[in-house]
Amino acid sequence: MQIEFSSTSKNHLRKWTRFADAKYRREYGFFLAEGVKVVEELFKSDWQLEAILVLPEKISYWEKLIASAKDQSSVYHLTRSEWKKLSQDKEPEGIIAIVKQKEQPSLSALIKSSAGNMIILHEINNPGNLGALMRSALWFGFTHIILSANSADYTNPKAVRASMGSLFQLTVVSGVDLITVLPQINKTHYLVGSDVRNGVPPHPLPKKAALL
């Protein structure tokens, strides 16, 4: 496959580097998704791809992946020094996607209509830990994540990288006041929470469960 590269300008690079900051992710409505597995999961999803950034010397990692993309977005090649301004990896795989953020769904509608299980996360401040929790949630069959206020941004590059692309297969609602929302969830889901003092085994769970 012959890949046609678009030119990378200083303005492009300046804009992309700003996506490390939550303020600019909100302002522009885009975030970075780095790594072969992450981008592969992105391609399988309905998230909108804005552009693909590649490191030419790592072509063996990403060439076939780009060829499989349904959405033929612009592909920009970066130098090693440019790449270091964006990458989270010490040993990069040489591919980063610029992804358009989705509009956050209505939480009340999600609670009422959701047929799947959800996991409720309270003040997860570390983006790497948040990404790992997203990955585990998908593995164990959860389809929705409710993320409390004062938590890390799930579009933080470290969170996206640690999720290994699981983010793109989940519905995430962030900035939630759990004091207000938990009573609503308890009406429609079997609510399970941890308790260090007393507790009962949660298994088997009904189909509509919410794990706190």
Rank of each mutant, 00 (worst) to 15 (best):
L86S: 10
I145R: 15
E103H: 03
S113I: 08
K158L: 13
G128W: 00
N126Y: 12
F142V: 13
L107C: 03
V54L: 07
V160P: 02
A115Y: 11
I98Y: 05
I119C: 11
M118E: 01
I95T: 13
G94K: 12
I146D: 03
Q104S: 14
A149F: 00
L65I: 03
E103T: 15
E82A: 12
V54I: 15
G116N: 06
Y61H: 15
G116L: 07
L49K: 08
S81M: 07
E123D: 03
A137L: 08
N126E: 09
I59A: 14
Y154Q: 14
E63T: 15
S87M: 00
S136D: 04
K102P: 07
I124V: 14
K70W: 04
N125H: 11
L65D: 03
F140D: 04
N117A: 15
T143V: 06
D71H: 03
L130A: 13
P127F: 01
V75E: 07
G94D: 05
P92I: 02
Y61I: 11
L107W: 01
K64A: 13
P157R: 07
A115E: 15
L107S: 04
I96F: 08
N126H: 09
K158C: 06
A109Y: 08
A67M: 03
M118G: 02
H122Y: 05
E103W: 01
I111F: 02
E123Y: 10
A132D: 08
E123L: 03
G116F: 13
F142E: 05
A97I: 04
Y61A: 14
Q72K: 10
I96H: 09
K85N: 14
Y76D: 03
A97V: 12
